[in-house]
Amino acid sequence: MSLNDSLADTNKKAKEVSEKFFHSTYDYYKLKIFQQLTASFGIVFKTIIIGSMLIIGLTFIAIAAAFLIGKALGNYTQGFLIVGGVFLFLSLLAFILRKHMSNFIVRTLSKKFFN
C-alpha cells in the first residue's frame, strides 16, 4: 500500500467519523431545543391558567371584603375605598421590590432551563 492510498484511507475514515459526529450532535441539539421549548411553553401555559384563576378568585374576595367592610362601617363606598387603598399599597410595594422579583424569576427559570 502506498503512502497516498494510506492517506486517502485515513482521510476517508476521518470524514466518516466527522460526519457521524456532526449528525449525532445535530440530533442532540434538535432534541435539546425541543425539550427547552416544551418546558418553556408548559411554564407559560400553567402560569396563564393559574394566574387567571387567581385573579378571578382575588376579584371576588376583594368585592366580598369591600362589601363586608362597607357594611361594618355603614357605608359601602368607604369599604370599596379601603380595599382599593390596600391594592394600591400592594402595587406600590411590588413596584419597589420589582428588581428583587426579576432576579428571583431569572434565577428560578435559569435553574430549570439550563438543567
Score class of each variant (00 low, 15 high):
residue 1 M to P: 06
residue 1 M to Q: 06
residue 1 M to W: 04
residue 4 N to P: 09
residue 7 L to N: 06
residue 9 D to E: 12
residue 10 T to I: 13
residue 10 T to G: 06
residue 10 T to K: 03
residue 12 K to T: 10
residue 12 K to C: 02
residue 13 K to E: 11
residue 15 K to S: 12
residue 16 E to M: 10
residue 16 E to Y: 05
residue 18 S to V: 13
residue 19 E to H: 05
residue 19 E to K: 02
residue 19 E to V: 13
residue 20 K to P: 00
residue 20 K to S: 11
residue 21 F to H: 07
residue 22 F to G: 09
residue 26 Y to N: 15
residue 26 Y to D: 14
residue 26 Y to M: 14
residue 27 D to I: 13
residue 28 Y to M: 13
residue 30 K to V: 11
residue 30 K to F: 09
residue 31 L to A: 14
residue 32 K to M: 11
residue 33 I to P: 02
residue 36 Q to P: 05
residue 36 Q to S: 12
residue 36 Q to Y: 02
residue 38 T to I: 11
residue 40 S to A: 13
residue 40 S to K: 02
residue 40 S to W: 03
residue 43 I to F: 09
residue 45 F to V: 11
residue 45 F to L: 15
residue 48 I to K: 01
residue 49 I to S: 07
residue 49 I to D: 07
residue 50 I to D: 08
residue 51 G to Q: 05
residue 51 G to N: 04
residue 51 G to D: 07
residue 52 S to P: 01
residue 53 M to R: 04
residue 53 M to S: 09
residue 54 L to N: 06
residue 54 L to H: 02
residue 55 I to Y: 02
residue 57 G to P: 00
residue 58 L to V: 09
residue 60 F to I: 11
residue 60 F to E: 06
residue 62 A to E: 05
residue 63 I to R: 03
residue 64 A to S: 08
residue 64 A to N: 05
residue 65 A to P: 00
residue 65 A to F: 03
residue 65 A to C: 04
residue 66 A to S: 02
residue 66 A to M: 01
residue 68 L to A: 15
residue 68 L to P: 00
residue 69 I to V: 14
residue 70 G to N: 00
residue 71 K to I: 08
residue 73 L to S: 05
residue 73 L to R: 01
residue 73 L to Y: 04
residue 73 L to N: 02
residue 73 L to Q: 03
residue 74 G to Q: 04
residue 74 G to K: 01
residue 74 G to T: 09
residue 75 N to G: 01
residue 76 Y to C: 02
residue 77 T to Q: 10
residue 84 G to E: 05
residue 85 G to V: 10
residue 86 V to P: 00
residue 86 V to I: 15
residue 88 L to P: 01
residue 89 F to G: 12
residue 91 S to Y: 10
residue 91 S to W: 08
residue 91 S to K: 09
residue 91 S to A: 14
residue 93 L to N: 04
residue 93 L to M: 08
residue 94 A to N: 10
residue 96 I to K: 01
residue 96 I to R: 01
residue 97 L to F: 14
residue 97 L to V: 13
residue 98 R to S: 14
residue 99 K to S: 12
residue 99 K to F: 08
residue 100 H to V: 11
residue 100 H to W: 08
residue 102 S to G: 02
residue 104 F to K: 02
residue 106 V to C: 07
residue 109 L to I: 13
residue 110 S to D: 14
residue 110 S to C: 08
residue 111 K to Y: 07
residue 112 K to E: 06
residue 113 F to A: 15
residue 113 F to K: 11
residue 114 F to S: 10
residue 114 F to K: 05
residue 114 F to Y: 12
residue 115 N to Y: 10
residue 115 N to K: 15
